Amino acid sequence: MPAVLIIEDHEIVAYSLATIVEDHFPDSNIKLASTFLQGIDIINSGFLTELIILDMEIPGGESYAMVGRLKALQPEVKILVYTGHDEDKHAFSFLSAGANGFLSKNSPMDQVDFAIKQVLSGKTYMTERVQQQVAESFFNKTAGRTSTEPATLSPREMEVLDLLLEGKWIKEIALELNLKLTTVSTYKTRIFEKMKVSNIIDLYKKVRLY
């Protein structure tokens, strides 16, 4: 029974999101906030939420800083940014700030449904378009690095990297690539070492810099 906080000032959009959550989690505890500060007040009142669906342009909002502020109050909360703005310009910044997913309001309902379930299950949600941008950014800028920069990844490590950036778990990557769990874990460790990071969020930030 997930607790969900929807911070969205458009009433129709907010109720549509609430309906999607209720369809899959009938016993869910859902609260709505029409401003960012109202959302903060709900959390400060003691509402322990597992998922926040956050409108990027919410009144009183603070752009990327909203993610950090919300996670400072509840570090384990998952945040899905839901916006009418172009994901090309904003997705990386929100994901780097700690958001667990970024979704356009122009997405079809089945994609909204999938994104909510993906984030609630502990995965990171990105559209194929954003995934492609992340991969291209990395591939296009790995050449010509100095000795102080991360070592080049092998082709197989690149495959694992792409799947990690999609938010897939070790077991899912093993099945998709037909590898043992221990082998995938080893690849993940090597990627983190070469990229000089210790978690997925830092990996996003590192790839974004390339």
Rank of each mutant, 00 (worst) to 15 (best):
F47T: 09
L48D: 14
L48Q: 15
L48N: 15
T49I: 06
E50Y: 00
E50A: 06
L51V: 07
I52F: 06
I52G: 08
I53S: 00
D55Q: 15
D55H: 13
M56D: 04
E57H: 14
E57Y: 05
I58L: 14
I58G: 08
I58N: 01
I58E: 03
I58S: 05
P59D: 07
S63M: 10
S63F: 09
Y64H: 10
Y64R: 13
M66C: 12
V67M: 08
V67R: 08
R69W: 03
R69L: 09
R69F: 08
L70T: 05
L70Y: 06
K71L: 04
K71E: 12
A72F: 12
A72N: 13
L73V: 04
Q74M: 12
P75R: 02
P75H: 12
E76V: 06
V77S: 02
L80F: 10
L80E: 05
L80N: 05
L80R: 07
V81I: 09
Y82A: 06
T83C: 08
G84W: 01
D86H: 05
E87W: 05
E87G: 05
D88K: 11
D88N: 13
K89V: 10
H90D: 01
H90M: 01
A91D: 03
F92P: 00
F92E: 07
L95R: 02
S96W: 01
A97W: 09
G98N: 06
G98Y: 02
G98M: 03
A99C: 00
A99N: 02
N100F: 01
N100S: 11
F102H: 07
L103Y: 01
S104Q: 03
N106A: 14
N106G: 13
S107T: 14
P108H: 11
P108D: 10
P108Y: 11
P108N: 03
M109T: 14
D110W: 05
D110I: 14
D110Y: 13
Q111C: 08
D113A: 04
D113N: 14
F114I: 13
F114V: 12
A115K: 07
A115T: 01
A115G: 04
Q118D: 11
Q118F: 00
S121G: 09
K123W: 10
K123L: 07
Y125I: 05
